[in-house]
Design a protein around this nucleic acid. Structure first.
Length: 487
RNA sequence: GGCGCCGUACCCAAGUGGCUAAGGGAGAGGUCUGCAAAACCUCGAUUCGGCGGUUCGAAUCCGCCCGGCGCCUCCA
């Protein structure tokens, strides 16, 4: 079954065909770097990470561009208010450049922790002022924009398709308008392409219209088209950005080039916390760094991928704890497989107990259906149950089969969903690591001897003490013991 | 006021016209076990917010109602 993607533009699932054979050009709106990333960012970028990984699994070369917004994003509506980064800079008594850099690093740190692969290009808005100015000039030349007092606005009335992505019409928007009208604008929904810098504004650049700075929407058009072409395959982002941000991107880009901008629009849904939307004013704002104090990065990632990217998800202790247990179950199964693999013989007189290919096909089918990660995860669990049953039987186990099972986990749980910890995937360990493992093994063996002599209090003490160090001992029915580093 | 989404077992969450309504957590019973943990087996919604309608057939389509949420203003 071929890959189908839900396209916000057409509001239906469509078969995916790339513009250029075997290549995918994809852009996802990146963060505005004025604060630590929160779990909403986590959902968005983990979701699109799974998308990228799936494209690569399917054999596409993916050019994945994700911007860093470090200028132009204002705090208020109607192109009024302060630049978010300059505001934060004032609060923290740093200059805006330092703020942007600091939170850019914070963002990448958190994404690395969550196993989100880096985009192939991470352009900064401030690094593309020239491209943005050029785009504004084009829009002025073509009559889609007008200049007022050193600012340039997009003239939405000149673009009849404005609203096609979000299903809105200008007349309706006007009727429900709650924004104060900026007197410089011809129409309330005209938006700023370039803003005149007021005295005291730090981030400013010379332009044909005087010193100023770019509007928020223009950066995405300028950078996406620079790196991906005037028409490209996929544009992703949070659903709340469909209007006005993505609508404005379409208006700018298509007006400037006369060509379709994006072929498939993908929007992820929101994260709520205990049932309500996250908001700084509500005091329920959970940063990724906060979440990682309570849960492992993989738990967070598993939690996110356990619901569909287009569904909203509620962050709650109960849900996260459930996710943690579920992920442990999956990891345990992988560990059991590794243990069995070490003991397995090459004897070919035993046959494969079940078809791994069946599970592979199911997994592919689910991911090909608009990246249905919850169902794909369910396939992993079904697979684990079958495998556990087989491993639970006394040996000998079929080594080629176990190797195939290992590959299944590595590819689908590991490479595609990014849910396997290093501990079960890593290459032969470093010398110091090997020594630690031998020390633990020695301790476990001593405890085994104590148990044979029925010295329970002392053997339990060793188990408890190791547990405090994060080393979990599990005794097996035959009297042997295994150990592992806890989650 | 306009646009849109959701309501599936105790919790999370797939399924969107027709095989037994996935999967995970929690729970119950069992196997194993010095205890613990893990693993394995078994059980768990005759039912999908409510009421009507369309249909041979609906959780899935339509209408109304109840409840929750998002966007329309910055937000992943």
């Amino acid at each position: 079954m071929a890959l189908v993607i839900y396209n916000t533009l057409t509001r239906k699932k469509e078969a995916f065909t790339p513009l250029h054979p075997e290549r995918v050009h994809m852009y996802v709106c990146g963060p505005t770097v004025y604060g630590h990333p929160h779990i909403g960012h986590a959902k968005s970028y983990v979701s699109f990470d799974a998308v990228v990984r799936w494209f690569r699994y399917l054999g596409y070369r993916v050019k994945y561009v994700q911007n860093i917004t470090d200028v132009g994003h204002l705090t208020d509506d109607a192109d009024e208010g302060e630049d978010k980064i300059e505001k934060k800079a004032r609060e923290e008594r740093l200059d805006p450049w330092e703020i942007a850099q600091y939170y850019t690093w914070s963002y990448f740190d958190d994404m690395d922790a969550l196993g989100v692969l880096r985009p192939t290009i991470s352009p900064h808005a401030t690094g593309h002022i020239i491209e943005q100015i050029e785009l504004v000039k084009t829009l002025l030349e073509k009559g889609y924009a007008y200049e007022v007092n050193g600012s340039v606005y997009y003239d939405v009335c000149k673009f009849p398709e404005y609203g096609k992505l979000s299903g809105r019409r200008l007349e309706e928007l006007e009727a429900g308008a709650r924004v104060a009208v900026n007197p410089e604008k011809k129409h309330p929904f005209d938006f700023a392409l370039w803003k005149r810098a007021e005295p005291g504004h730090i981030m400013r650049w010379p332009s044909p219209w005087g010193e100023g700075y770019p509007g928020w929407h223009i950066e995405c058009s300028a950078m996406s088209m620079k790196y991906l072409g005037e028409t490209f395959d996929i544009h992703g982002g949070g659903i709340e950005n469909a209007f006005p941000h993505h609508e404005c991107e379409i208006a700018q880009s298509e007006a400037a080039t006369g060509r379709p901008f994006v072929r498939y629009w993908m929007h992820n849904n929101m994260v709520t916390v205990d049932g309500t939307k996250m908001g700084k004013s509500l005091g329920n704002f959970v940063t990724i760094k906060d979440a990682l104090k309570d849960y492992s990065p993989l738990t967070l990632r598993f939690f996110i991928l356990s619901s569909h990217y287009r569904s909203p998800v509620d962050y709650s202790a109960q849900a996260l704890e459930g996710a943690q247990k579920g992920l442990e179950r999956l990891h345990n199964s992988v560990r059991h497989l590794y243990r069995a693999l070490q003991k397995a013989t090459d004897s070919s007189d035993v046959s494969s107990p079940f078809s791994i290919e069946t599970f592979q096909r199911r997994f592919e089918k689910e991911m090909n259906d608009d990246f249905n990660t919850p169902k794909a995860i369910a396939v992993l669990f079904d697979f684990s149950r079958e495998l556990n049953k087989y491993l639970h039987q006394p040996g000998p186990h079929h080594k080629p089969f176990l190797q195939e099972a290992e590959r299944f986990y590595q590819v689908f749980a590991g490479e595609v969903l990014g849910l396997l910890p290093e501990e079960v995937t890593r290459e032969p360990s470093a010398p110091i690591q090997q020594m630690v493992e031998k020390l633990i093994q020695l301790t476990v063996e001593v405890r085994g001897e104590l148990r044979r002599r029925k010295l329970w209090p002392l053997s339990d003490k060793i188990r408890d003490q190791l547990a405090r160090l994060g080393i979990v001992i599990k005794d097996r029915p035959d009297g042997s013991s295994e150990w592992e580093i806890g989650e």
